[in-house]
Design a protein around this nucleic acid. Structure first.
Lengths: 136, 136
DNA sequence: CCTGAGTTGACAACGATTCTCAACATCGCT
DNA sequence: AGCGATGTTGAGAATCGTTGTCAACTCAGG
């Protein structure tokens, strides 16, 4: 503890990063980087796709957004609350419900510990058809 | 019911498909299509990469292999027992433990039902560092 | 041996993501 | 405000996993 400095991340609040954050705020469900980029473009802003990826990764690292993989492996993103949780995603319309599962958390670390695995992370996503899409 | 024929899938047990099955049998953990293809090649057999993908997809459809996504979105495959289960995968060496979680199954369908979602599927994978890799 | 349907392989095509690198924007300081 | 150091950006090329294309091929069985 040589000082109280939080290692100065030197992350700058640029126009681009703000645009990405704003776009995320406009969505309630998980979106691909491309969709987010499209929204930004449609709103008149101009931000490079690569920059969108960079911003999203940074936000994911800092825990401000969730990134998960759709069933076909594409990365999809969504702003999130800061607590750990999982998602119930509608396969057809993308509607998302955030769910918490203390039981699952406990179960995964128990299982992992049982087998001597350390430094655990886990993914748990539920896909289904939501009531609205069900009536078709 | 015009007959008892099971819709004759007409899937032929070719040399290539046998090679893929054999390669899968040689692994205990999840491997990418490319690794599987490499193994086949190294064993002297010659099978096109596209064919490996086709065979793996077919096997996955028929439930003979598990396909899941590694943390970076790549598809990885492994032969599997026929019961539904999840995996505890070592991030560094790929060692896999198959785990069952009746509690989790129950939890996911409960959650889904609670929100009116139907036709549920879920993914739950645990990543960590196994004891062997831990000692480094 | 002939024929038809499933299969294959080489390679092009694709799509998501990352890399490259020169031009640019900010920050901290004076 | 002016400066220099350093993080950031954009356009496009480059990667890389995966899928599509299509002519050649392989079986099964008549």
């Amino acid at each position: 503890m040589t000082s109280t400095e939080p290692a100065r991340p030197a992350v700058r609040p640029t126009r681009q990063r703000r645009a990405v954050t704003a776009a995320l705020a406009a969505f309630d469900d998980f979106r691909s980087a491309q969709e987010i980029h499209d929204l930004i473009t449609r709103q008149g802003d101009s931000v490079g796709l690569a920059t969108v990826y960079r911003a999203l990764s940074a936000l994911a690292d800092s825990g401000e957004v969730d990134m998960l993989r759709s069933e076909d492996g594409e990365a999809i993103w969504r702003r999130c609350s800061d607590t750990h949780h999982h998602h119930l995603v509608c396969r057809s319309c993308g509607a998302t419900v955030e769910v918490e599962g203390p039981a699952v958390e406990r179960w995964t670390s128990a299982i992992a510990g049982e087998h001597g695995y350390a430094d655990i992370s886990h993914t748990l996503e539920i896909f289904g058809t939501c009531p609205a899409c069900r009536v078709s």
